[in-house]
Design a binder for these strands. Structure first.
Lengths: 349, 349
DNA sequence: CTTGCATATGACAACGTTGTCCAGGCTCTA
DNA sequence: TAGAGCCTGGACAACGTTGTCATATGCAAG
């Protein structure tokens, strides 16, 4: 073994444990650095015999190319970032997976993190990802001001927002048709004879919640019904408060005969409340959930396609990177009403 | 503006879009490269006045430190990799989130990917993460031979396996007590008078499935009952086959009076089948799932704590990195029986 | 005015890889 | 056998950052 090899081994001893580098491999195989690089990358111009020697040295040393260095040299990291609200939320699992599949198809890795619905944390995460020089960023916004990303966009970081629109910045956005979905859901209740329909949803400062509320109002107005304040409960999302809100709507002299639930978690709590009440009350929920069909009655929902959201966003991202895409666009994906029973209950007399 | 600045801007034009570097900032601020580095990293020894000038240049150019280069220089990437089976699976959401939280507490980012239960893809992913020089790796094994990771372990990549043990390699493992949980679940059925108890689960080559089967057998043997082959259905996991298996067990002259379901998906399908049958049959499922309590009757389950699995694994990982940890260990976390009704149904006469 | 010292700043190498370019040896043809 | 052309292989710079070390500046003390 040439002298350089030993020296180099020693020099690298404290870094990354002590991973061998191409230099070490080259020394051991008795070839030049670049030849090793060629073998590792399958570039042409290496004799089978030389290649064999290099390969042997690689195996013997347990060498693995350092992609960090490679990235520094090449300028592209082949990785994209995903900032979402909560990895543990069943809605984001399929979305995240869809993004991953598209990334994989493009040879990219996925780095993701949860903002926990905190705008500061969203920003911190997004910027950390930019510092890692991800090629692109898929963001499910927690905040409503994304001007902090402007320098990054200008610098060429491909960016797509999903599920909620970007704030104060011009960028690609992929959304569900929250307005249309809610309108359809409420119209479905109206078609089954309901007029007094309750709405329980999140704070209207959240875009999806506002849109769904708007759809609710539109459907009732289309039917010529005047919406009463007591029918709506906004900014209510934790089980306790949803429960109280539902019970209030169902009590009183003139109770609602149906409830439209503004999201997943609300729907589930309302199901619990209705199960305890004797008077049958119709229910339609925004967002599908597992086992909704197994409940008695099955829960009628407006389903969004989370995987499609993720896939569409990621595909747009890579088209930005290809240069195929120019102007930012706003894409709305349709929702689908799934009737399972709870939405077809007629109004109690 | 000094001449160098313009030249540098031009040279960098095609890389990372055209992100400014410390060199560009230095040129613009009229200071040395290292001074910029000092300011960016909050190192001491910079006059307030100089700092102001540098900060100004940073803002004007929209500079953000390139962490890839930083990583190359420093040798630690402050990121860990997570290889799991399927991000979209509700079981892995909380696990993944727990790992992320621990990583965040240690200032690390999380890169994750799905193996889709394919050993080759698991290996490909794990090695890709090693090439990125993640500091550590949390792996939910798809395959049962992990010798391919040996060079990486030797090179100092901290590694913890979760949910299933590592194959042919000595490493940290964090598991649920699959054997004990299954035994408890079946014992629960036995305590309610059942003897003829069916088991539907995954292929025994999957460690968790094998352990649960072992627990099932142990409980019945403890009760002095001879297990009959017709009670067990192994390697059955897709809805169609689970359905057929369940129906077979429930038919015939001497049907089972209770079923123990080996995992989540099996449980759900069995619930459907039982709902169609008139004779009441008891059911206990391994793994909790959302809304299990809302069904009629509520589904009794053996719950594992996915978040605890993830947290424990990640914490061990960082203790490996600290050097606090020496010998690999196998940790088993307890499971919990949650009685909700379906497991307390007495045997039909 | 010189010496000594602390403090602010910059020049330079190094991290591990890839792209560019050149050299040496070979084959082929005239 | 010489010249052209191809193939193999290596030297060197560069990617953007940080660590080391040297220098310049200012000020106090002799």
């Amino acid at each position: 073994m040439p002298e350089t090899a030993r020296r180099s081994d020693h020099l690298n001893a404290t870094r990354y444990g002590n991973r061998p580098t191409m230099k070490d491999v080259a020394a051991r195989a008795g070839v030049g650095l670049k030849t090793v690089s060629r073998v590792v990358n399958g570039e042409p111009g290496v004799t089978p015999e030389t290649e064999r020697r290099v390969q042997e040295a690689i195996d013997a040393l347990g060498f693995r190319r350092n992609d960090s260095a490679r990235v520094l040299r090449k300028g592209r990291t082949a990785s994209i970032g995903l900032v979402l609200e909560d990895l543990a939320d069943p809605f984001y699992g399929p979305l995240s997976r869809a993004v991953e599949e598209v990334a994989r198809a493009h040879g990219a890795l996925l780095i993701n993190g949860s903002s926990a619905e905190d705008p500061d944390r969203e920003q911190e995460l997004a910027l950390a990802l930019c510092a890692r020089r991800v090629d692109g960023l898929v963001v499910i916004p927690a905040g409503d001001d994304h001007r902090y990303l402007e320098p990054e966009l200008k610098a060429g970081v491909a960016t797509v927002f999903v599920d909620r629109p970007a704030g104060r910045i011009d960028a690609d956005v992929v959304l569900s048709d929250n307005f249309g979905g809610a309108r359809d859901g409420v119209a479905h209740l109206i078609a089954h004879g309901h007029r007094r329909i309750g709405f329980i949803g999140d704070m209207p400062r959240i875009h999806t919640a506002a849109e769904r509320l708007r759809g609710y109002r539109a459907a009732l107005e289309d039917a010529g019904t005047q919406v009463e304040d007591s029918w709506m409960s906004l900014g209510v999302t934790d089980p306790q408060r949803v429960r109280r809100a539902a019970e209030e709507m169902l009590a009183g002299p003139d109770p609602v005969t149906a409830i439209f639930a503004g999201n997943n978690r609300v729907t589930v709590t309302v199901v619990r409340v209705l199960a305890e009440h004797s008077r049958p009350t119709a229910l339609v929920g925004f967002d599908d959930f597992e086992l909704a069909d197994l409940l008695q009655p099955g829960v009628t929902v407006i389903a969004q396609d989370a995987a499609a959201l993720g896939r569409t966003a990621a595909e747009r991202l890579f088209r930005q990177l290809d240069g195929t895409l120019i102007a930012p666009e706003r894409i709305e994906l349709p929702t689908r009403l799934i009737a399972r029973g709870s939405g077809e209950v007629p109004p109690a007399v």
